[in-house]
Nucleic acid binder design. Sequence first.
DNA 1: CTCTAATATTAGCATACGCTTATATGTTCC
DNA 2: GGAACATATAAGCGTATGCTAATATTAGAG
Lengths: 129, 129
Amino acid sequence: MLILEFTKMDRGATAETGEEGRDSAACCTAVEHGLSADEVAADLELLDAVGSGTRYEALQCIAAGGEVCVCEIEAALDVSQGAISQALARLTDVGLLDRRKEGRWRYYASTDRADRLLETIEEVRSVDE
Amino acid sequence: MLILEFTKMDRGATAETGEEGRDSAACCTAVEHGLSADEVAADLELLDAVGSGTRYEALQCIAAGGEVCVCEIEAALDVSQGAISQALARLTDVGLLDRRKEGRWRYYASTDRADRLLETIEEVRSVDE
DNA sequence: CTCTAATATTAGCATACGCTTATATGTTCC
DNA sequence: GGAACATATAAGCGTATGCTAATATTAGAG
């Protein structure tokens, strides 16, 4: 448990140090998460990748469909082919999709990361707020 | 191993209905996720909410710090007070933060949803790609 | 009841983002 | 070889987004 003993009282403050029993966090001391800048960046890349309608639905389709080729997603998503391709590329870049070539088309499948993530999202969706 | 026997030939297609034994997904048949539009919308709201640097770091700080007051986050995040307030409001709206008033300040704490989500993100971060 | 601190809210703006359209790459079939 | 298909990539643009700055609200102190 973290105890803080100092409060922000700058801005011409009058040294009011009424520090009585404060069990949990005190006011105006910087908090920190334990993450490095790189970790934050990685997480955000991930979150940004799933955080668009097209990409999220594409990912869900693929996760549901097992191994799916691009044209199937095109049929499902109602945006242009270019948009789909960009979406899949992005999801692949962050490790949410695997790509496999076969002849003139490409099959995408969701990775473990994606499955774990989607699983949690569904789980969390039904948590009462 | 998946073998495909049918390719997209619509675009003025000639009513080719070769619907034989199709084990997994075939090419160019629409795939579907099982989610309703509302569910997708809810998920995206969630993902959008965490998917910004400021909001994500704020959430991480709060999750790490237990119960945290706004000014603490201000000290940690290096954006304006207004931006922090907006970020916390948004996170609260989607059920990732709980708000508690005490005197003239507000304490925020992460909800179960948030904790589950962050946990999974960390878990997923270290999955080899 | 006024003054100030803590937070919320609003307006406005610069940037980032996702889409479409157009074009390039790669593959099969003839 | 070339035509047609499946996908990727690039340019360009309209919109959404997150920030700052300014203002409003709420609460405690005197």
